[in-house]
Amino acid sequence: MNISQTEWWEKAQADADGVIVDVRTPDEFASGFIPGAVNVNFYEQEAFLNFVESLDKTKNYYVYCRSGARSGNSCAIMNEMGIENAYNLSGGILEWQGPLA
C-alpha cells in the first residue's frame, strides 16, 4: 500500500511493533537511512525472499527505497507471501523530509 511520507512516518512512530525496512543496496544504505531501518537488498532476490519468509506475518512493515519503485515491488511480494500490512513510502528517500541516520 502506497502512503504519503507524513502518514508513513506517523504510523511507523506510533507502531511499537512496526519494522522499518530499507530495500536499497548496502552502498545506498550507507549513504544515509531512516533511523531504525533494517537493510535488505531487493536486488539480491534469494536473500530478500528468505528475509521476507522469516518475518513475523502479524507485524506492520514500513518499506522504502530510493524512489518508491523497489519498495513498491517489495510490498507486493510481501503481500503475496502472507504479510498483510506492508506500507510503501511514496517517493522514497529522494523525497524524504524526515530524519536520517
Rank of each mutant, 00 (worst) to 15 (best):
N2K: 12
N2A: 06
N2S: 06
Q5K: 11
Q5V: 07
Q5T: 10
T6A: 14
E7Q: 15
W8V: 05
W8G: 01
K11D: 04
K11I: 01
A12G: 08
Q13F: 08
Q13W: 09
D15L: 11
D15V: 06
D17S: 13
D17V: 09
D17C: 06
G18T: 06
G18K: 07
V19M: 12
D22N: 10
D22L: 05
D22P: 01
V23E: 05
R24Q: 04
R24A: 03
R24V: 02
R24I: 04
T25W: 01
T25P: 05
P26R: 03
P26T: 05
F29C: 03
F29P: 00
A30S: 14
A30E: 13
S31E: 15
S31D: 14
G32Q: 07
G32N: 08
G36K: 04
V38R: 07
V40L: 12
V40D: 08
V40A: 11
N41K: 09
N41H: 05
N41D: 14
N41I: 04
E44K: 15
E44M: 14
Q45T: 15
E46K: 15
F51P: 04
F51G: 06
F51C: 06
V52P: 00
L55M: 14
K57C: 13
K57I: 14
T58H: 04
T58F: 05
T58M: 05
K59R: 12
N60L: 03
N60K: 10
Y61A: 04
Y61S: 02
Y64S: 02
A69I: 12
A69D: 11
A69K: 12
S71F: 07
S71E: 10
S71T: 11
S71Q: 11
S71W: 07
S71N: 13
G72D: 00
G72H: 01
N73F: 10
C75I: 09
C75G: 06
A76G: 09
A76S: 11
I77P: 00
M78H: 03
M78E: 02
M78T: 03
N79I: 09
N79W: 06
E80A: 14
E80P: 02
M81C: 09
M81T: 08
G82T: 06
I83F: 06
A86T: 03
A86Q: 04
Y87P: 00
Y87T: 00
I93D: 00
E95N: 15
E95P: 10
W96L: 07
W96Q: 10
Q97W: 06
Q97D: 13
Q97F: 07
G98R: 02
L100K: 05
L100H: 01
L100P: 00
A101M: 05
